[in-house]
């Protein structure tokens, strides 16, 4: 990774962590949504450092554009003033959860930090529209088609639940 790339990575990584922390820690839902936005935009920046320009653009379009807007829309429908109450739960379960989280974090941090993977050469079309198209529609055609069934099931399920019970 070149110097500029490394700088971009560090900056976006810091912002991604801050955004993620705001998302889970904010009491007000709107702030959490804004934290998510920061996180998503930072992730798009990270994709840039990985030479995945198309993915970065899609990340901005779909996630920052559509999904965060959808979240904000729902929050506004419910009422932005809604606040979560104080976190329930006994000290035992909370401290167990905290200890487990810390343990997972430490394990991941130490093993990823000490991990020395070899660099893999990528094709010239990596990250381009052509490259992504080939990856999706040739190599990963089966998962791509499976996703269409997954989405279909989700749509049918949502309609089945939301339909008026009188019909």
């Amino acid at each position: 990774m070149t110097g500029a790339g490394a700088t971009l990575f560090v900056v976006t990584a810091i912002f991604a962590i801050i955004g993620a922390l705001i998302t889970v820690a904010a009491r007000r839902p709107l702030r959490a949504a804004m934290g998510l936005l920061v996180h998503i935009v930072s992730l798009a920046g990270m994709f840039l450092t990985l030479n995945a320009h198309l993915l970065a653009a899609l990340q901005l379009l779909v996630y920052a554009g559509a999904i965060v807007v959808l979240f904000v829309f729902v929050i506004m429908l419910i009422g932005p003033e809604a606040e979560t109450g104080p976190i329930e739960g006994r000290l035992v379960s909370r401290s167990t959860a905290g200890a487990l989280t810390l343990a997972v974090f430490l394990v991941v941090a130490t093993s990823v930090g000490g991990f020395d993977a070899a660099w893999i050469a990528v094709d010239a079309d990596f990250g381009t529209v052509e490259g992504l198209g080939l990856a999706i529609y040739r190599n990963a055609l089966v998962p791509f088609e499976l996703i269409s069934i997954t989405l279909l099931v989700a749509i049918i399920g949502a309609i089945a639940i939301a339909r008026s019970p009188t019909e």
């Binding site: 998962p143 499976l146 996703i147 997954t150 099931v153 989700a154 049918i156 399920g157 639940i161 019970p165």
Partner: peptide, 23 residues
């Protein structure tokens, strides 16, 4: 990848089926 997709297809359908009698 296919483990996750299979699991999600199955689970999404199962959630909706459990909620089927929504009254």
């Amino acid at each position: 990848l296919s483990i996750f997709l299979g699991l999600e297809t199955m689970s999404l359908g199962a959630y909706a089926l459990v909620a089927y009698r929504r009254t």
